[in-house]
Design a protein around this nucleic acid. Sequence first.
DNA 1: GACACTAAGACGATTTCCGTCTCACCGTCA
DNA 2: TGACGGTGAGACGGAAATCGTCTTAGTGTC
Lengths: 199, 199
Amino acid sequence: MSHLVTPTELRVLDATKTCCERWGIAKVTIDDIAAEAGVSRATLYRMFPGGKDVLFDALRVHELEDFFTRLSAHIHDTTDLEELLVRTVVYATVELRSDDHLALMLASEPGDTLGNLTVQGLPRIIRMASLFIAGKVEPYLDRANAQRLVDLLARLVISYFLAPSDHVDLGDERSARTFITTHILPTFVPPAVQPASTH
Amino acid sequence: MSHLVTPTELRVLDATKTCCERWGIAKVTIDDIAAEAGVSRATLYRMFPGGKDVLFDALRVHELEDFFTRLSAHIHDTTDLEELLVRTVVYATVELRSDDHLALMLASEPGDTLGNLTVQGLPRIIRMASLFIAGKVEPYLDRANAQRLVDLLARLVISYFLAPSDHVDLGDERSARTFITTHILPTFVPPAVQPASTH
DNA sequence: GACACTAAGACGATTTCCGTCTCACCGTCA
DNA sequence: TGACGGTGAGACGGAAATCGTCTTAGTGTC
């Protein structure tokens, strides 16, 4: 799932992570990261042309990929569509809320939490979640329906953090299952019963 | 014990503390603190002429005074010299090690702990500890002996954090008592038995 | 030796930060 | 009412940092 990342790039990303935890994203400088990674500033700019923005974007993507890799491992044995959706939503809800660093990376201030994310971070995580879930549910639905479902679920998960009181408790598996089976699944029509492709 | 601090000054000190915890002392700016305290920069400079250094000094003193106030309350019922020393050392050791913010204020980097204090912070805490302990043990000893004892004990407590393996476990009351009664007290001669003064 | 990659650091441009200053505002008290 | 002390907002010039690019020299590989 994860695209190619060289060891040095990984070291830089780890250093960025460390520096963010120490000083907050607003106070980190390129030199801090380079020093922490034991890398010269020139090397850092060679790896991430565009400077801080590109570097932070890369870190965000890297962190999200990590998250989706863990999520993938968590649902790899699921074949039923409903089960897949329920476990995805529950895992994403619980893990996202407990992943402090992910919150840090998506926020702009160290004090921010997933509960008061800036508007810049939200579309990104929704897009990433969509890409991930799309790959998992596509065999069960036609492309248009899958996209609708994906958007709906991703926004459902994310909006959970923004106004928890307005929504069902997605972290509870039973309520998540009830919500999905009664409100989401009935609106979609699977094009074929068997998920396994022929070729 | 604590000298006069106006409510606004206290608010500024609290804001400084908050900002330090958020960004680390190396990254905090005057404007950050002023904004956090809801105070203009002009007001801040009027209260603490000299800028950041004076402000941080004031905060350090304030934090240490807080600590010594708590310590004072902890040993207020002690009249025996040995008991006084033991409880002071044990309390100081345990509390100093668990007081993250004090460590933060004495360190120059947020990652620093009392275990790797910079050399600037150490003399300050030793001096403050000396002043405090001196006032407590002076009735029991003549002035010269008291000063020797104070220096020795203060350095003992502090050095505990610098190389724990080389020293007795001062956080354990029994070992602290043993160490004090066998190694420290015998070298001092009390000038008078009764601590109560006549006038 | 050619080559790719790197650390170290100089450089100018830009931005941030500092400390001081002015000015308007707002309560208090005579 | 008017003087007065304290405050917030913000302009200002200088100092310091940060940025992004660049050169140079060193290192390991083929």
